[in-house]
Each structure stands twice: as C-alpha cells, then as structure tokens.
Design a protein around this nucleic acid. Structure first.
Lengths: 229, 229, 229, 229
DNA sequence: GAGTAACCGAGACGGTACGTCATGTCTTTAG
DNA sequence: CTAAAGACATGACGTACCGTCTCGGTTACTC
C-alpha cells in the first residue's frame, strides 16, 4: 500500500511479461527439466541479471509464469458463483429444501452438485489440453523438486481457487444438499489430486469421463439421505 | 528364459544395489533437485560410467531406486486380501448381508470398507513418514520432469499395486456392498491422488484424519442403499 | 587499429598471463603428455571455461605459453645486429676485406661468422637448460601432435626469429664473406633442426661442442674461397 | 637362442603384426594425438589386454609400429655401401688421393659425396611422402611427449641407420675426400634434423631442392682443400 | 539541467555437473 | 596360460548452466 518510491531507474514492466511469456514458450518446447534461466533470458531478449533481479530461482519463476497465465485464465472455470453468491445463497436455502422452493430455491437445491459438475468437467478438460498439461506438470515438478520454495508459492497462489471450490461445496452444506459433517477440503483435495495423478501417470491418454464418474461417487457420498436419488 | 551367457565380464550385481541405496541416501539428504549422478556414483563408491551403463537418466534411476525400495516394501500395506482372496470372497458374499453387522462381525458385508480403511490409513501414514515422503516426492519430480521416461516406469511399476486396490474395491461390488455402476478406477485415482496432492502442497503439515474423512465420503458414495448406515 | 569496444564484460588480462604461467609450471613438472587443461585451470586458479574461451586446444595453448615466454626472452640471443644493422653493414663491407683480419679485428670480414658463432653457441646452451628444454620439447610435441594447429603458430611466431638468422647470414653474403649462391634458409634449417634433433634423441646428454663443430663445417662451406683459412 | 618353452597357450604371432598394422592405419587417419589403445585394439580385431601384454605404452607401441615399417623399408635408401664397404675402402684410399688413383680410386674419391647426395635426396623425398610424414611425425610426437620412454627407443632403433650415415661420411675422410678433423656426427645430426625441422614447420609444403642445397654447403665445408671445385 | 542511482544488454568469471571417452586392471568363458 | 569380451575405478574431456560480477550505456527521479 505504501509502495516506497526508490531512487534510480524503475524496472521496466514490459520485461516482466516478456520473461513470463518466454518461460511458457520454453516450457512447452523443452519441459521443466529442459528449461534454463539462460534460455528464458535469451527467449525474452533480456539479460540474465534482469531475470535474477526479479525471480531468485527457477521454481519461483516457473510458478509465477504458470499461475499468472493458466490459473489467471482458470477462474473463469471456477464453480459458477463462488464466494460472492455463497453469502446470498445462505439465507435462501432452508434446511428442508423440499418441494416448497421458490423460483431460485429449485435451482439451488440441485445447483451445487450441478455447479461442481460443470466446474470439474471444465477443469479436467482444461488439464487435458497439452498446453495446460505442460504448465501444470511444470508446476508439479517445481513443487516436487524443491518442497521448501514451492510450499509458499503453491499455497500462496492456489489458495484462492482452492477456497472457491470449498466455498461452493459449503454452500451445498448450507442448503442442506450435503451432509454437514463432511470434510469438504478432503473432497477438494481428492478432486484436484485425482486430476493431477492422472496427468502424471496417463498424460495424453486420459480415461474418458473419469471426472464425471468420480464426481458421481463423491456427490452421492456427500448428499444428505433425502437428496439421494 | 534360459538366460543366454554373454561374453565378457558380467556386471557386478552388488553395484546395482549399492547404487540404488546411494540414490536413496542422497535423496533424503539433498532432495531430487540436489541429486546428481556424480554424488550418487561417489556415494556408491562407483564410477560414473557404471551408473550410466545401467540407467540412462536421473529420472529412470530415481524411479528404480524409489520403486524398488519403498514400493517393494509397500505391498505389505496393500489392502488385506487383494487378488487371491477376491476370488474366494465372491462366493461367500451373498446379496442379503442383512442388518446384523456388528462391530466384531467377520462378515463380508463390512470387510471391504474395512479393508480399504485399514489400507488407506496405513498408506497415508506411510506417506507422512519423512523418508517415504522424500521418496515419493522424488518420484513425482521424476515423472513431472520427463513425462516420457516416467510414463513407462510409473505405469510399469505401480500397475500391480494399483490393481490390487481396484480388485479390493471390486470385491465390494461383487459382494453387493458397493454399487455395480461405480467407476472403481476413478475412486482409486482419487485416493492416491488426494494423498499426493496433500504431499505436494502441505508436506510436513498433513491435516489430521483427512484420509478417514475422504474415505468416509467415498465409501458412502460407493455403497448400495441398503448398506448405508 | 582503433580497437573496437565489444559489448559485455571485457576479458580479464590478468587471467591470460596466469594461465600461461600455469602452463609453464605444469609443463616443467609433468611434461607435455602430463599436461591437462584441468591441471592448468586449477594451477591458474581459473575455471576450465575461462581457458577454453581463449585457447581451443592444448596444442595452441602450449604453443602460446612457450612462445610468449621462452622465445620472447630468446631474441636477446639472436645474432647481434639482426635486421637493422644489416642495412648499414652493407656499405661498410667492401669486397676486398683483405688478409689483415686479426683476432681482435672488428672488421666485417669475420663478423658474420663470429656473430653466428656467438648466437649459435648461446642458442645451443639455452636449449640445454632443462627449463628451456622442457618448453621446446613441449612445442615440438604440440606441433607433431596436431600438425594443422601448429603449422600456423609455428610459422607465425617463429618466423621473426628465423628471418633474423637468415638476415644475418645474408649480410655475410653481401659483405662477400659468404658465397652468393648458398641457400641460406637451408643453413638456418640445419642449425635449428640439428639442435632440436639432439634435444629429441639425447636430452640431458648433449654431446659437448657439437654446435661449434657443426658451425665450423657449415661456415667453411659457406665462405668464398678467399675467405677460407 | 634358448627360448624357454613356457607353459600355456603360446602368443599368436599373427596378432603382433595385426596390431602394428592397425597402429599405422589409425596413425594415418587420426594422427598421434587421435590414436588410442582402444582404437588400435578394435582395428586389429584384438582385445585391449592383448595389446597391453605386448606394449606397455602408446609411445613404445607407436615407435615399434613406425620403426618396423618405415625404417625397415628405409635401409634401402641408406647410403650405398654403408658398413661393409667401409672396411674394404679403408685400405684403398691413400692419404694423398691425388691423380695416382686406380680405377676404383677415382670412383671412391667422388663417390662419398655422391653417395651422400643420392641417399639424402632419397631420404628427403621419402619424408615428403604423406604416409611416411605421418609416421615420422608420430615418432617425433612420441619422443617429445615422453622423453624418458622415447630416449631408449629412439637411440635403440635408429642407431643402426645413424651409424651407417656416419660410416659413409667416415669413408670420405679415410679416402682423403673429407677433412679429418670434421665432426661427422654433427653433420649427420644436421642432415636428419634439418629434414625433421622442415617436416614439423612446413608439412606439405617442403621447399624444393632444399636438401641438395644443404648438402652442397655441408660437403663443401667437409672437403679437403684440394677436393674443392 | 546536473547528479545520482538503479536499470538495461552483454558477456566474462569461478564453479559444478554433465555425459562421453580412454586408461589400465580385473574377471569371466573359451581354447 | 593366452585369448576376446567387457565390466570396473579413475580421471580428463569439452560443454552447458549456474548465479555473480563488471562493463558501457540508458532512464528517470532529485536536487
């Protein structure tokens, strides 16, 4: 907020984006192992110190590049609604959620499952895209290679999205659609982890409709008895 | 099958194990990123060519080392029974499996859920061990870094264990405990993926009892209506 | 001529001399065969790339090191006079150069022979010194090992000295002391070649006074009849 | 002479020549620096230990290979006559060597210079041949690289030829053609050294007729006054 | 508008590790 | 005991990157 004005020539923000773009370019071509700071600098038309001045390690650089592009585009495929709506939804969804639902309540009674389905399908599809797959694999590699560096970044950058998912699930609980005692974060971990695991072990050959099938089991397990089919 | 005797001095199998042991030693000390072929060779008391003669890349070497130690020890924590029993179980589990399933009942009606619970708790605990965590992170790093190399190894080496889990689940279907239409592999992916995702993002600070909570939801989602509590 | 300033950090000229000095040090200790780029880099307190950045091969490096030290010091033992004087000598030496050449005479009649004698004795003595012998053997090894590399360097660096010798002989021709039809370069080759051949085949055990004896025959063969004793 | 019959399988003498031939083949293709024991063994269709069993170092192996081929063929270009004749010549050549020469004496009075000329021209020509040049360069490289190894070999293998030349010159002294006080070995060194020096510095571009020109000066310098033109 | 301070590109620097090759020894099977 | 084959420990090869530094030069704030 205070943003101290330091003396001297300010950093050129155009370089910033050029470097991140170069990272994504190299990542697609050579993968995480094949990415070097020198290649990135060269591809960005920038000197090495300019890169190091802004990112102290390959892991943080890659994390930034991936999260600012892929995940910055990903919110669009976050569960419809998310945080903001959840507040308003709270009041409307009564415990019973039977037939006496208003025009909006009918939608909410099923909408959480539906929202999750829509979101997860989009998420899984997105991860299936080779470009995105390369980005996520890079992120995984960065995290796995240097757990210390990556812990911060991972949590720091992905927390927002993660919480959107959990909030979405929570709105299902509030509406009575889901069991109140369910561990929603466990479900979120399973959803994301499942996709990442498939990415690691079956890149390029994802089993069809696996995402829907998993959701089917999970949502059934989450639902309160009177919401089950 | 008859193992043709090739000319020349045969490879010293003692080196093989020495190298794999050295990999695990270095992995624990320095992590995947800090592991170099030179360190491994030195730690194993072996020349670099002896390493390269057997493993062409860091990824395959690490994968072998991890899978031959951790996962060779892991089968002990596979779901009790597994393949063999699944055949015998088939006959015993009648569709009825009435309501009289007490806590001590050895009946099949709860055994699959129970087996899964026992296994998954052991699995999650095992992954929580720092030694094992380091090994698995290395495996993930290897797979993420060079998808091509790792795909073969991953699938090749982990398929057996993976199928044991799926078989266990399938015996639950056969016994009528689980829904026949469930995608068991999706469930297996979610279980394993969930643990790996937590390992990546929360190493050292695993949320307590998350594993049980996930299983709770999944098993509930899997059960046939008359098996639900 | 104006030395274009190239971009980037300029090369540190101190490293240059440090490396050449290291080469000479290693050469004395281990000989040409025992000299490795790694030893040189280590002895110079320098990274290997810094060596390779300046010299692409062991042969060129050794040639530079030897020629910039030994031969840079050697001009002092070039035939007294050399190029510059040769022009002035021309006028002084009259064709007659009568019989009155005593031992102390500064006359031109004996000066060329004398100059050659003084130079060649010094040259042979210099080559007899173990330090110099090691340097020259290294130069020979470099030249013999990679004829292509060495041709350039050899010709490039030794041409100056070689021509001083030939010029000295030529002044003897001009003064009438030597036959006009003699192949002076053949004589220079024989003088140098003779010493090198002895170095190769009798290192450490040079036959005494061989240099004088050779010169005796060669100068006699060069002299015009009325200059012969 | 005694040739103790040792137990076990005797060495296959065919390998010996195969290895030497392989050395020459590799030497022509890759030069001395590019010759390795492994290449030689492979080219000879032989195991490395078989090579090491017979030659303990690259230098000795190369020396043997070169001297047993090139120099074994070279004696044919030794000065006609050589040792044997020198004994018979002794008696015939009287000190005066004036006009009172017999039918054979006229021939001997000039034949030494002639013999030397014929030999040296052949020698220089032979060294000009690329195959021979490569061999001799290899020999020089071996000698320069490891003076210790090479001293023995050089002296050991080339002494015979060297003495033939000196003997030839000595017969010129005996016949009165050459000065009695000349250092014949100095002359031999100059002849051989001159050729080697040119080989080192001007491979492929030998100055024409340099050999004759050198001999001209040397023989003139060697001749007794009444033999001079 | 002159300082000044941080930026920029380029690239040299001391290092570390790479993956390959050659060394000379040793071990195996075969003759 | 020799032979071919080839594994072995060792160590140098020449290259690629690392992360830091030093250049000449630029750009923007501050006096």
């Amino acid at each position: 907020m205070d943003e101290v004005r330091r003396p001297g020539r300010p950093r050129d923000s155009a370089r910033h984006e050029a470097i991140l773009e170069a990272v994504r370019e190299v990542l697609l071509r050579d993968g995480y192992a094949g990415l070097t700071m020198e290649k990135v600098a060269a591809a960005a038309g920038v000197g090495k110190p300019t890169v190091y001045r802004r990112w102290s390690s390959k892991a943080t650089l890659v994390a930034d590049a991936v999260l600012h592009s892929f995940l910055a585009a990903a919110p669009e495929i976050a569960p419809a609604g998310g945080r903001q709506q959840h507040a308003t939804d709270t009041g409307t969804s009564t415990g019973t959620s039977t037939s006496t639902s208003t025009s909006t309540s009918t939608s909410t009674s099923t909408s959480t499952s539906h929202q999750m389905t829509v979101w997860f399908r989009a998420y899984a599809t997105s991860v299936g895209d080779p470009h995105h797959a390369a980005m996520i694999l890079a992120l995984i590699a960065a995290a796995a290679e240097s757990p210390h560096d990556a812990r911060n970044l991972y949590e720091h950058h992905t927390r927002a999205q993660y919480e959107i998912i959990v909030d979405c699930l929570r709105s299902g609980v509030t509406s009575g659609e889901f069991r109140a005692d369910a561990d929603l974060e466990a479900v979120a971990d399973a959803l994301i982890g499942s996709v990442l695991y498939q990415l690691l072990t079956r890149t390029g050959h994802p089993p069809p409709r696996r995402a829907e099938h998993l959701l089917d089991v999970l949502l059934t397990g989450l639902r309160t008895p009177d919401h089950r089919p």
